[in-house]
Write a protein that binds this DNA or RNA. Sequence first.
DNA 1: AAATTAACCAACCGCCAAAAA
DNA 2: CTTTTTGGCGGTTGGTTAATT
Length: 294
Amino acid sequence: MGRAPCCDKGSVKKGPWSPEEDRKLKDYIHTNGTGGNWIALPTKAGMSITPSYTHLHFCTCACMHVHSCHGDVSGLKRCGKSCRLRWLNYLRPNIKHGDFSDEEDRVICALFAAIGSRWSIIAAQLPGRTDNDVKNYWNTKLKKKQLHLLIAAAAHGQQYGSRPPAPPFALEQQHHHHTSSTSIASLGQLLMFGGRGGDQQQQQQYTSSFSSVDISNNTSAAAVGLQESFMFGGLQFQQQEEETNNLLSPPAASSSGNDIMTYEHHEMISPSGFFFYGDGAGAAATQEGTRFLY
DNA sequence: AAATTAACCAACCGCCAAAAA
DNA sequence: CTTTTTGGCGGTTGGTTAATT
């Protein structure tokens, strides 16, 4: 019953790939493709290489190289899953390495705001970038960059307190049927978390830890700063809203007569994350299953 | 110059849905 | 229909390098 095991877990190699392993994998895939079967690939890779032959192929740098393959026919001692990852994240053609452009930053921020940590979807909008790359970039750099902007903008908002105050807002956790307001600090932390369904518990735990902080009485300037931070981040609210609605099923939104806009719970609503809308309201953050009261 | 800390990123792990036997 | 594998995805880890003390 079922399939045969994919590989002997005990005999496969782990850790960084050697140039020789990379060469074997590249050569095999250039010649044969993946064949839709990563699990079988490691044993085939290397086996198909005729000793001491020379061939041309396009390398990851998009240049044509001449490779001489001197018949190590032992095959790759790697799990197919590992081969797939290595190929997709590093070896396949047209992979872009190096710094992300401002435009790429904007795309990542906007999409993260809209759909959360769906890295494969985000990476698909950035030619040459892998989900792993985008994820790493977000976690190590962009997230902090956004947070600094947020903090700076909050400070700016306090410094120029005469700006038009933003209306108070609150986050209401629907799942738990209680209302909790949040602070700019917790919003920053939401940014730190991101994530989708699987992280909900963590997110909710964190959010609830801030639930007693209410900015509605004293930090309208901070709320203004929050809006600005996302402006600085290059997000285009109105456009983003459209894109989000195209990408995801739109939440059932209703606006009551007393300026309270309620987003009913919808499983596809900004799963991580931030939910944006324009029209002078700026940006605010919410979570899946969270009603945003404004 | 050495030790410590922070940042980076490739690769692994575990989960899930779909497919295969 | 049930069981098991596969492919894909996102979260996390740990090794390496850079920066700081």
